[in-house]
Simulated scan of single mutants.
Amino acid sequence: MSVPPLFRGLFDDASVFPPGDLPLGEAVPAHRGHRLAWYADSVGPFLCGAGRAGELAALRPEFPVALVLPPGGEYVPVPGLDVVGVEVAATVLPRLPAGVPGCLELPYGEDLFKLLDQLADTAHRAKFRTGGLTADAFPTVAELAAALTACAERGVPYKCTAGLHHAVRHTDPVTGFEHHGFLNVLLAAADPDRAAEALGERSGTALASAVGSLTDRQAALARLSFTAFGTCSIAEPLADLAELGLLTQENR
Rank of each mutant, 00 (worst) to 15 (best):
E55R: 13
G54T: 09
L56P: 10
P77Q: 03
G85Q: 04
Y75D: 01
G73D: 03
P71N: 05
L81G: 14
G72I: 07
G54I: 09
A90Q: 05
F63W: 14
V76Y: 01
A89V: 10
E74H: 04
E62H: 10
G73T: 08
A57Y: 09
A90K: 04
Y75N: 02
V88S: 03
A57R: 10
V65A: 06
P61Y: 13
P77A: 07
V68R: 00
V88W: 04
G80Q: 07
E55W: 08
G80S: 06
V68F: 00
F63Q: 13
A57T: 12
P64R: 11
P79E: 15
P70C: 03
G73M: 04
A89P: 11
E55V: 09
P61N: 14
A53K: 04
L59T: 15
A53H: 04
E74F: 00
A89D: 14
T91K: 11
P61H: 14
D82M: 10
F63I: 11
P79F: 05
T91S: 15
E74I: 01
P77C: 02
E55Y: 08
P64V: 12
A90M: 05
A53R: 07
A66H: 07
G54P: 06
P79H: 08
P64T: 12
A89Q: 14
V88N: 06
V78A: 07
F63R: 11
V88L: 01
V83A: 05
G73A: 08
P79R: 12
A66W: 01
V88R: 02
A58G: 13
L81D: 11
L67F: 04
P71T: 03
P70M: 04
A66Y: 02
A66L: 05
A90W: 09
G72E: 09
